[in-house]
Each structure stands twice: as structure tokens, then as C-alpha cells.
Design a protein around this nucleic acid. Structure first.
Lengths: 350, 350
DNA sequence: GCTTTTAATGCATTCGAATGCATGATATGA
DNA sequence: TCATATCATGCATTCGAATGCATTAAAAGC
């Protein structure tokens, strides 16, 4: 009795022997009784295939779980639809929504995002080697590449777009924010509020973005006749800002206003002011940042800063890339996203 | 005169007509006077190729800028060396270092990371369609997929690893932290400190990670005879935590301790306490989080929380994937990363 | 009813690297 | 000196989809 029940039980699992390998257009063709080329054309629907045949093919494809192999397609079309995005640990941490936005924008254009990691200090294309073996359609770089490396990439004829940075010497498509002008605006605002004794806490001196911001700021102050502004170099981070600022403050007079090259730096400076030095912000000292990351709006920081729309920049980067792919020989393009002043409570302003 | 100078000038640019297309193994073969197969073998160095020939081939390859085409290789080897990583805007924002670590670990194994974006609510494999047309070797999912979708992916024979989540019903390789046990530990710590009136601010009820944490917490309290703990559901975010908490507090008695299913939620609750409700932490109320993101250590938050090593989890995920690729038929694996209690100042403890 | 046009499909080749097998050139042994 | 073993290389095919051209069948024209 028990045996019979046991024997009757295992009817549930359908013994459809799963194919060890992925179905190909030939499999579909055979089952549908058509030629492989007909299957291909049914999927591309770029040619004259009768409605019934197409439907039949798609139906068979559905049942066997067929899906065109993008690799095989790339071989013949010479378009891999793969776009590399180069990021370091820092750029990834600082722009996660931007990376996501790039992925979305690429997907909308039928392209895929190949994420290529690179070390934070002195990244080279040798670090990307594995990824470059794939015939990428293009590359969006969120890291600073050397001139020779940029040249090498261009010689490979892949569409290159720099994200949030530009190449000073070689013409390359790029998207940036107007760092310099925005920093100058910040300087004017602080100066107008009566601040005269400044401190500048920058990012790595090798990072052009930080340099542009710092130089834009200093240049504007110079125009007001203010010079010899002390300068602290950091790694862009919270800890860097905090520790760099504290080191600078040892025995020095507290500045009236601190310009930080990023919000993260500013957070570090702010916490150092309030929790270590016991300064009240903005009564004793004004602190401003740059980026307007979401945390800047929190009441704990309430940071006055320059807003940069990273997601917009990401979309623009993809836009430039697609344009470049459509017209490889057109002249170099540059998109600029305008930073906007965000007035909050961390700085005394008029 | 001027004409002559002008005519003489443009000598600089070397007129090496760049090949419109990427060099192939045939190009190298022709130039080196060997067969294409010899070029291939020189690069794979898996076969008996004399040292001189290999050197010659590599030298020629260098001068013409040849690099094996990974796509063509994949066609024949049936290994694309592409691994998909599925992420939503939220998971990407919450785990940027983990994504980076996955990229690094994959690169070390000669694989590339294909980043596949998916919507935050109810992601399905239809969202991944474009990426799935590539014959991926495997997939690391940082999002919650439905059972049928998981089944479909398994039927495609691609190595699937779930990151920071497990599949309750279908056996799938996965890496998680011991959310439930860790939350229980948190509950014991708070209970031991004398707290008796609790509030629970969870993530989305559909997110198993949040559920595990909340259930682990509630279950432990139940063991202490404490039940009917009010529960707030959020989207895991700062704003969600802040607003959800404030809504709950309307007319309600302030709880002694608030358990938050993530640090971001806890930050929102903390700011609501201090900046909106005027409560002192931890004097008036204890708040604890979960994750130990870097911001939790800042003096402005000083959050007591459970530390989860996301980077470790990322590496383990890649490790599992590689093991699965090496032994497709071996039994299902599960790696667990142990969360550790981080005692800081946001909660009254013994 | 026969030719011409058009539409629908099949055939055969292509993309670039990998690889089993055959071949040729040395080196080794008898 | 000849046979055999060893090493190095070439030949030819393969992966899966796309596509120019050829072919067939049906529709239209006369």
C-alpha cells in the first residue's frame, strides 16, 4: 500500500530534460521548420518576413527559451553595445546615483555597462586591460587618465567621454560642472558677508576638479586683494578634512571662513569645529562645501554649498557618448552643468 | 616666404594612417609570417610554441596594438568571462564599496563586471533582458528576485549568487549576514540595560533583510515577555526614518529605545529626536541602527549599531560564484558574515 | 495563359580566436 | 645511415547570428 502511494507521488516534476546548452537560432529554426536566417530576421524585424512566420518563430523561441546571443551578434555587426565605465573606489562612493543613472541611460539606448575598476592613485589603462579586450563601443571615464593613455584609447577608435573632468591638453568629449565659476561665486558671497580671513581645504592637488575649485576661489579673492590664503591638502574625505583642518588649527588663529573643495571635507571640518574645537557654527566660523550631497541638507550639518547635479551630468555623459557613436568624426563636444548656490546655515551670509 | 614656412611646418604629425579597424590575429600573423593559430597559441601560451616565435609574435602584436578580442574568444570557449551584477539605485547607494570590491575580485579572476540596473520596487528579469542576451557566466544579485525569476535564471545554467539576501524557498548560493541573530543580540543588550518600551522602525516589509532583522529583534523580546511593539515601515531611507518616526510619535508616548533596521533610518530618527522633538540622546531615548556605515562613527551621530562587513560579503559572493563555476553540480553553498556589536553613544547600555 | 513584378525565404559566407589533427623539421636512438 | 620520437607549426573547422544574393512562389499585369 505504502509502496503504491510512493510510486504514485512523483508525478509532479515534469521530466523535461533541460538542454545543457543555451538554445540557438538553429534550434529554433529546426523546430519551426524554417532556415536560421529566417529566425534571425524575425528577431531583428528589419526585413520582409511574413507576419505568420514571425509569429511562429517567436512562439517557438518562447517555448525553447531562445534569446539572441549578443556576443555572436556583435561579431558580425561590429557593435558590442558594451560601454565601459571606469571608476575608482572613491568616485564610485561619491557618485553611486550617477553610476546608476549611466546604467539606466545606457540600457535605454540598448547598451550595457561594463564597470571597470581602477586604483585611486595614478590609474592607467593597464588597470583596465581585461575590460579593454572586449571590443567596447565606448568608454566613460570617471577617473583622471594620463595624456598618453587618452591618446591610446582614441587610437583604438572608441568613443571616450570624461565625466566630471576635462582633459587640459588633448581634445576629448567631456562633461563637467563649472567648478571655477561656482567657486568664485562662493568667494563673492563670503566676501560680501564681510569675511576677510579665509582657509582653503582642498582635495588632492593632482585632482583637476579640486584644483579648479580651489583656484576659482583663490582667484576671486585675489581680485578682492586678499592673498596668502593658507591651504590644506586632503584626500577628499571626511577624515582628511577633519584631520587636515585640526592640524592646520594647531596654534593658528581661527579663520573667519573655511572653503572646502567637497562636502565630505566640509563635514569633517564642521565636526572638528563643533566636537573638537568647541566652536559654534556659524557664529565663530563659517564653513562651506561643494557638491550638495544629500547629507548636506540634514539639520546636523545644514551645510551651505554649491549644488551639482550628478545625475544630470551622468545623463549628459551618455548623451555625448551616443552622439559620438553616431558621428565619430564630428568635432569635440563639451557639456557643462551649472552649479547652483545652496544657502543653508553653516555660513554667515548677508 | 610665409607660404614656404607654412608648407614646411606640418611635418610633426606622423602620417601613419591609423587602421580603421582593430588589429586581428590574422594581421599579426601576416606581419610576423606565421599562421593565425600560432598567434593565438602565443597569447594563450598553453601549447608548445618556441620561445623565439612567441617573442616575435608578441613583439609584432605590440607594434600593431593587437589585443585578443574577448568576444571572439568567448564564442569558441563558451566562457564570456562576463558576470552580471544586479543593483537598484538603493543597493548601489548603500553598497558602493561592495560593488567596487566585487569588481576588483572579478578582475582578479579574469572576469568582467556587467552592471545591470533594476528598479527598486519589484525588479524582474525582464528589466535585465538586455544584459541577459549576453551569455553571462554568472550573476550576483543584490536585489530581491521572485521565485519564478530565480528558477528561470537557474534553467539558463548561469551561476547565481544572492548578495545580502537568501532565497527562502528555492536553493540558491548566497551570502548574508546573520541578521536575525544579530538583531536578537541587540535586543538582549537593550533589555539588559533596562529598556522595556520599544519602537521598531523597519525597512520595506517586502525586503527579507529588513524582515529578518525586525523578526530577530521582536522574537528575542517576545522571549522576554515583551509584545505588541509598535512598528513603522519605511523605505530604508533617512527621510523615511525621520518622517515615519515623527508620524508615529504624534500623540504617542516616547519609547525608551528605538530599533532601526538600518543606519540610514537611525540617522533620520536621531535627527528627528534632536532637531524636531528636542529629545536628548541617549538620556531621553536610546536609538540603535544596523549596518555600521562610516557615518555612524561620526560624533554627530555616534550611533550604536551592528557592524556588517560589506566588502567581505562582496568578496565572499565572488568566491562562491567562482566555486560554482568550477563545480556546477556541487551542492548549494551559503556563506554567512557575522555581524558584530558596535557600542557607541546613542543608546543607554549597561 | 504567359510574363513580369514583388514578396518571402533559403543558401552561403562572414566576424576573430581557439583547437584537434596533420604535417614538417629536428633530435634521438639503434 | 635510417627509423623513430619529439617538438613546432600550419590547416581547417568551430562557435552563433547577420546579411548579400539567389531562388521560389504568389500576385499583378497584359
Amino acid at each position: 500500500m505504502a509502496n503504491q502511494i510512493r510510486a504514485a507521488a512523483p508525478d509532479a516534476a515534469p521530466s523535461t530534460t533541460l538542454p545543457r546548452r543555451r538554445a540557438t537560432s538553429y534550434d529554433v529554426a529546426r523546430q519551426a521548420g524554417v532556415a536560421q536566417s529566417t529566425v534571425s530576421r524575425s528577431f531583428r524585424n528589419d526585413s520582409a518576413i511574413s507576419a505568420e512566420t514571425r509569429e511562429l518563430v517567436l512562439e517557438v523561441a518562447r517555448t525553447v527559451g531562445y534569446m539572441p546571443n549578443a556576443l555572436a551578434r556583435s561579431m558580425i555587426t561590429k557593435r558590442s553595445n558594451l560601454v565601459g565605465v571606469v571608476a575608482t573606489n572613491y568616485t564610485l562612493r561619491g557618485n553611486p546615483e550617477a553610476i546608476y543613472a549611466i546604467g539606466e541611460a545606457l540600457a535605454a539606448a540598448g547598451k550595457q555597462l561594463l564597470l571597470m575598476t581602477a586604483p585611486h592613485d595614478n590609474p592607467t589603462i593597464a588597470d583596465l586591460r581585461g575590460g579593454l579586450e572586449y571590443p567596447l563601443d565606448g568608454l566613460i571615464s570617471c577617473v583622471q587618465l594620463s595624456d598618453p593613455d587618452i591618446k591610446t584609447l582614441q587610437e583604438r577608435h572608441l568613443a571616450l567621454v570624461l565625466y566630471n573632468r576635462r582633459s587640459p591638453r588633448i581634445p576629448v568629449d567631456s562633461v563637467t560642472a563649472n567648478h571655477g565659476a561656482a567657486a568664485a561665486k562662493m568667494a563673492r558671497a563670503l566676501h560680501a558677508a564681510g569675511h576677510r580671513r579665509f582657509l582653503c581645504v582642498g582635495g588632492p592637488s593632482a585632482a583637476p576638479v579640486s584644483r579648479e575649485r580651489v583656484e576659482g576661489f583663490l582667484h576671486q579673492l585675489l581680485a578682492f586683494g586678499i592673498k596668502n590664503i593658507p591651504m590644506v591638502e586632503t584626500d577628499y574625505s571626511y577624515a582628511g578634512g577633519r584631520d587636515g583642518f585640526l592640524a592646520q588649527m594647531k596654534g593658528a588663529k581661527v579663520p573667519e571662513a573655511v572653503f572646502c573643495a567637497s562636502d565630505q571635507i566640509a563635514f569633517g571640518v564642521l565636526d572638528a569645529c563643533r566636537f573638537t574645537l568647541g566652536l559654534e557654527v556659524p557664529k565663530d566660523i563659517s564653513v562651506v562645501g561643494f557638491d550638495d550631497v544629500p547629507e548636506a541638507a540634514r539639520p546636523g550639518y545644514d551645510l551651505t554649498t554649491m549644488h551639482q547635479d550628478r545625475v544630470d551630468m551622468a545623463r549628459q555623459a551618455v548623451g555625448l557618448l551616443l552622439q559620438r557613436l553616431a558621428a565619430p568624426e564630428s568635432s569635440v563636444m563639451h557639456a557643462q552643468v551649472t552649479a547652483s548656490f545652496v544657502r543653508r546655515g553653516s555660513a554667515k551670509l548677508e
